Structure formats: structure tokens, C-alpha cells
Simulated scan of single mutants.
Amino acid sequence: MRRRDQLGDEPPRFDIAANDAGYGAHGAHTDDRHGPGIPLPRAPGRQTVEGRVHGDDPWPRPENWSYRWTDPSTMNRTVNDYVRRNWDRIRDDLALEGAHDGGFDAGHRVGQGYYNDGMYGAGPRHSRYAETSLVKIRIRLVPGSDPPETFILTAFPVGIM
């Protein structure tokens, strides 16, 4: 209960770029992999959203879904709205487990990207453009922090949950 009380009644507010810069050593990576600055279509030798579906360098492996945030404002607003609306549950999870994982429908477009329409053996790997309102978020406490220090491990648009 002490840790829960230390987290407070008011939810924290996050700026994702600052969060990633401050907590990259703890794995924070929203902007690196899902930020609005990552180019959409494949381009040789560049990290792109579509290239992730195909496992293009520098991505370590192909993914069946790859989306980026539409813009920094949408990213920050969507994350902070979720944290504010769900703070009681998030705070309980953080106090008990040191982690909160959630998924939600923002109710408006938050991201754009590609999915592999040949996934699960339905055919060859092929990327298809899509937009989404779905989001996954992972919030963590810095290990050993006292008082507890909260950060966004990652928050990203998804095609399915």
C-alpha cells in the first residue's frame, strides 16, 4: 500500500520524446520503433514501417503488423488520455507488479502502417497499408526506485489486439 500511496492520486503526464530520452536505459522505445518520424514505405537501407513487415535491415526480423503514430500531438494526447482515464487500475498494477500492460481503442485514427496479408500461411509475405485506432501500452516502474518512478516502456498503434 505504501508504493500505491506514493504513486499518488493524480496520474503523471508524459511527453514521449522526453520519456524515451530519459528512460532509454530501461528500455523505453516508443519513438525509435513507432514514432511519426519513421518513413512509411520501404526504402533500401532505411528503417521504415513497411520494411518492418518484411524484416528489412535494420529490423531484426519480419513482423506481421507494423504501425507508427500519425504525429507527436496524437501520440502524447492519446497516451495521457489513457493514463488519466485508467489511473486507478494502472496505479494498482504498478504498486503490485511494477508493470501495467493495456490495450484500447482510442476512437479515432492514431496510427498508420502495414500488415502482412499473407500471414499465418495464407500466402507469400505482402504488405498492405492500413490506418488504426487501436493502441497497446506498457507502463513500468524504474526498478528499485523509491519513491516509485513511472515511465512508458512503449506505446504503439496496432492492427489487432
Rank of each mutant, 00 (worst) to 15 (best):
D81K: 15
Q112A: 05
P157A: 00
Y67P: 07
V110M: 09
G45Q: 02
H108Y: 13
I16T: 04
G144A: 05
D105N: 08
H29Q: 09
R125S: 15
Y67S: 02
M161F: 11
R13G: 08
R42E: 00
E97Y: 12
H108R: 10
A95S: 04
M75Q: 06
D88G: 13
A130T: 08
R42G: 02
Y129A: 06
H26E: 04
P39F: 04
A99E: 12
S66Q: 02
E63D: 14
N80P: 01
R33K: 14
G51W: 00
F151H: 09
S145C: 03
G35E: 03
V135A: 13
S127K: 03
R4W: 10
R61D: 14
G35W: 00
F104E: 11
D117E: 11
R140L: 03
V79M: 06
P11Q: 01
M75H: 04
D101G: 11
T30Q: 01
E97S: 15
R109P: 13
V49F: 01
I160C: 13
L94P: 08
E50M: 07
W87S: 07
P147I: 01
H34A: 09
R85W: 12
A21R: 10
G118R: 03
R68Y: 04
R52L: 06
A17P: 10
E149W: 14
R89D: 05
Y120I: 01
I152A: 05
S133P: 13
P147R: 11
G45E: 06
F14P: 08
I38G: 12
T154R: 12
P124E: 05
R2P: 15
H100G: 03
G35N: 03
D31I: 13
I152Q: 09
T150V: 10
A21C: 11
A25I: 05
Y115W: 07
E10M: 15
A18R: 08
G113Q: 04
R13M: 10
D31E: 13
H108I: 13
R3M: 09
F156Y: 11
M1L: 05
A25S: 08
T154F: 10
R140M: 08
D9C: 14
I38D: 13
D9M: 10
A95T: 01
D15L: 13
G35V: 01
L94F: 02
L40C: 06
